[in-house]
Amino acid sequence: MNAIAFTDVSKSYGNVLAVDGLDLAVEAGRTVALLGPNGAGKSTSINMLLGLLRPTHGRIEVLGTSPDEAVARGEVGAMMQSGELIPELTVRELVDFVRRLYPRPLGLDEILQMADLTGLVKRRAGKLSGGQAQRVRFALSIAGAPKLLVLDEPTAAMDVESRLRFWAGMRAYAAGGRTVLFATHYLEEADENSDRVVVVARGRVVADGTAAQIKAGAGGQTVRFTLDGQAAAGLDALPGVTAVEVEEGTATLRTADPDATVAALYRGTSLRVRDLRITGAALEDAFLALTQES
């Protein structure tokens, strides 16, 4: 069964089309990153997924039912992009309160451990640092043991160390066969913490696959070598190559399949290849290529 199914979903605010015919299906048990620049429609899509916004057009199913119904059944947990806590209440009071709103919640200690809050239980929310408050909000999102966990740019206010610990907590939660969808504009986060990356730009899906597939699909890897005045003709015909650049005696080939490109370079040409380097391009390059060309 699909945990999430968007079918031709659009959302417009007046003349502005925030989400434009989005189709997306997420199988239960997967961890999916929704990657896109600011204004790509990530938050709007997430708010529709949670029943906080209604689509202008199209249909959304969550765990086989409507978003409202899934939320009412306690099958969804979410960490919104912003949200303050009640300053007068302690961490334990907040987590335990939200936990008890759900029919089959996690144990209090288990939640506190996963969100790395065991040392802060008696602290009032008003006295927490930004990163600590963020961890409490994560705790609230997993408290009810939801089958679907939705995180909208969860690490926005965190320092590097908090980030690492946060993702460890998220993976621990996902390991129980639960579905996680998180939005981010940090490329490394999408790469390292998901098993599928959905790239959105201008309210549409522009790429969908594993991080490696997306890098490859956008011609994201490069093969470089010293050409030294030899003719560059024919390089663009090598398998996998999407672009050729020659500059100051160095040839740079962008390729979707560096193995095939290099094999053909040695066997299929008579060039003298020196200083060969293969760079697995950053997902960043792939991401920029994807979100700009569409």
């Binding site: 949670l50 029943g51 906080l52 759900y102």
Partner: peptide, 14 residues
């Protein structure tokens, strides 16, 4: 305004 209400709206509370 602070988003606490939204947090409650994504729990089973009506």
């Amino acid at each position: 305004q602070s988003g606490w209400l939204r947090q409650l709206q994504v729990t089973p509370l009506t």
